[in-house]
Amino acid sequence: MASRLSVPAFSPERFAPTPARPLRAKSRVLEHQTDIQPHRHDWGQFVFSMTGAVRVSTDGIQAAAWPAASATYIVPPSRAVWIPPGLVHAVTAIERCDLRTLYVGTGLLEGDAWQVGRVLEVSPLMRALVLALPALPDPLPAEAADDAERRRGIEHLVVIELKRARALALGVALPQDARLRRLCEAMLREPGRHAGLQAWAAEAGASPRTLSRLFREQLGTSFAQWRSQVLLAHALTLAARGRPMSHIAAELGYASASAFTAMVSRTVGMPPRRFFDHA
């Protein structure tokens, strides 16, 4: 297994939004298996990758859709994660990625929907707008009048695009119980290592009955349902790289593409190709 590298957050206070600059962009290249340590800040954050998939994990807030207070989001470049102000979060590079972050000042996005973390679509226009914003820390250089006017116009369009972005149910709830949390983290890293609860239970040193009870109590779902959501998230990332269906099925531990297709159709009510196009 490749060694992991844990790095601190990239000086978020030097990119803090202000009334004069309510949107701040920054960029960072992360190598495969690099983790940005958990941190929080007083402003909202829109995070995605220009290339490569990332995993964003959050903690410390109660999402209305899940009984757990923690969640993880596995997203390809066509998707992004919204992180509300004050929410503890960490980022992991599933593969080498060009990470982009947009800090959003208080008051730009209001309403209950912006109080919880979620996955959003990234339109081609949104990607272009974020790239057009200067990714510079404080102290900022002086701006010419024309440059300032252009920046304010871009910021206005970014907020419009954020409000229009469609939310996608691609988050996976995480438990508070330490033993089940370790198991879930292992499944997130290698979802295709074991197919059934019996094998995962043996690895965790617990009985299948105990783990089934913990999934119900901690996450309000069954092991099979939770694992299906993890597999879908990883499958979406692989599909975004152009992997054929047979390769995706094999990497996720399915004996055949038809077995994988049956799982996706049963879970989301549509075949994989339609789901990938839709999601």
Rank of each mutant, 00 (worst) to 15 (best):
P12L: 00
A16E: 11
P17N: 03
L23C: 01
L23A: 00
R24V: 04
S27L: 02
R28K: 13
E31L: 11
E31P: 00
E31C: 02
D35H: 14
H39S: 13
H41G: 07
H41V: 01
D42V: 14
W43T: 12
G44I: 08
F46Q: 03
V47S: 12
F48G: 09
V54G: 13
V56A: 10
T58Y: 10
I61A: 12
A63Q: 11
A65K: 11
W66I: 11
I74D: 12
V75S: 03
V75W: 07
P76F: 02
P76N: 07
P76R: 04
W82P: 04
P85D: 04
L87W: 07
A90N: 11
I94M: 14
R96G: 15
L99P: 00
L99G: 01
L99A: 01
R100C: 08
R100K: 14
R100W: 10
T101W: 05
L102V: 05
Y103D: 03
T106Y: 04
G107E: 03
L108G: 01
L108V: 01
E110P: 02
E110K: 09
G111R: 07
G111L: 09
G111P: 11
G117T: 06
R118T: 08
V119P: 01
L120H: 15
P124Y: 10
L125K: 15
R127I: 02
L129F: 12
V130Q: 09
L131I: 06
L131W: 08
A132C: 12
A132M: 13
A132G: 11
L133D: 07
L133V: 14
A135P: 14
D138C: 08
A144H: 14
A145R: 10
A148H: 09
E149M: 14
R150H: 10
R151Y: 04
R152Q: 14
G153L: 11
